[in-house]
């Protein structure tokens, strides 16, 4: 914007006598420019700004079922915040969310990248196999959850039966012990997230010119060296996108956990997502629910800032 306004006056200067009115033309141009931005701004304010502000305000209100009738939600200072922060469950849920997000991203990304590199070579039936791997992505989250809950059942589940046949124990309490439930939920989420990671990373790999690998091999680079010095650096922008999108969909996880464990056993898989759901829609304490929701937004916002920073330095 600054460059275009700087170049505008010299261009208009020679024709000063014939041009209708340079100030008006400039205004028109500026209006047109804002006209293009306006729909996006209105959309953002209406569908992101308003709910966000509303959520923040709600977290300072005593907002109960009565509010829906009277429209009155008295402000109660930081009561909601202090009661949520004092609740031992909040600390637990926060920790579970962090472990869940970090574990899921790590698993999804590593396996997704490995598969993407694998499918990047051409081989018979490669395309068919690649599309088969997309299946978990096509299945609705709740369906995956319900099916996995059966697979992971301790006594009758397919997984334990299978392990048992192989003589590998087969009595793992996947979803029924507070010690292993979170890990199991992470594993299922990794399974769900692999296709997404693979597809995007595969796309990124296709963009890397083949000559670079040829040059690297002429220089005597091993496959591992080529991966580290050619693939990874050139894939970095795609990796950032994958991780950021992955983070955003993982940190607010709700449906999968509700379908798998309902936050149990004994709150072992409660995350911020399930906690805000429980506060708002089971206990109907919308103020407390809003507090947890705000914490989730805050976490995402902090991450978004880092992401923008990283992008900016890369742009330079």
């Amino acid at each position: 914007m600054t460059t275009s306004t700087a170049t505008a006056p010299p261009a208009a200067a020679p024709r000063k006598s014939t041009a209708p009115d340079p100030a008006r033309a400039r205004l028109c141009r500026r209006l047109a420019r804002w006209g293009f931005v306006a729909p996006a701004v209105v959309f953002m304010l209406l569908f992101f700004g308003y709910p966000l502000v509303r959520n923040v305000v709600m977290s300072f209100q005593h907002y109960t079922p009565k509010t829906f009738f009277t429209g009155e939600a008295p402000f109660n200072g930081a009561d909601n915040w202090s009661s949520v922060f004092q609740d031992a469950l909040f600390g637990k849920a926060l920790w579970h969310t962090l472990v869940f997000t970090a574990g899921s991203l790590l698993g999804q990304f590593c396996v997704g990248l490995a598969l993407a590199v694998f499918f990047n070579r051409r081989f018979p039936l490669g395309g068919v196999l690649r599309s088969l791997i997309l299946l978990p992505w096509l299945v609705p989250m709740v369906v995956s959850g319900v099916v996995w809950r059966r697979i992971l059942d301790q006594d009758t589940g397919v997984l334990n039966t299978f392990l048992d046949t192989l003589g590998l124990g087969g009595h793992t309490p996947w979803l029924t012990s507070p010690g292993t439930a979170l890990l199991s939920v992470i594993l299922v989420n990794v399974w769900i997230g692999i296709p997404f990671n693979m597809v995007i990373l595969y796309g990124g790999l296709q963009e890397i010119p083949k000559e670079l690998y040829e040059a690297a091999s002429l220089d005597g680079a091993s496959a591992w060296r080529a991966f580290r010095s050619v693939t990874l650096p050139l894939l970095k922008p795609v990796i950032t996108v994958v991780l950021v999108l992955g983070f955003m969909s993982t940190v607010k996880i709700l449906d999968l956990i509700l379908a798998l464990t309902d936050g149990g056993p004994a709150d072992a898989t409660q995350t911020l997502g399930t906690l805000t759901y429980q506060n708002s829609f089971v206990e109907l304490d919308f103020g407390a629910g809003a507090v947890v929701g705000n914490v989730l937004i805050l976490i995402s916002a902090v991450f978004a800032v880092f992401y923008l920073r990283a992008n900016r330095t890369e742009g330079k």
Partner: peptide
């Protein structure tokens, strides 16, 4: 009781009963 009891809904319980488990 099965250790999976903590993860069962009432519908699951019925399935287990009907399956002879």
């Amino acid at each position: 009781l099965s250790r999976s009891t903590v993860n069962w809904t009432q519908a699951d319980v019925n399935d287990q009963f009907m399956a002879g488990n």
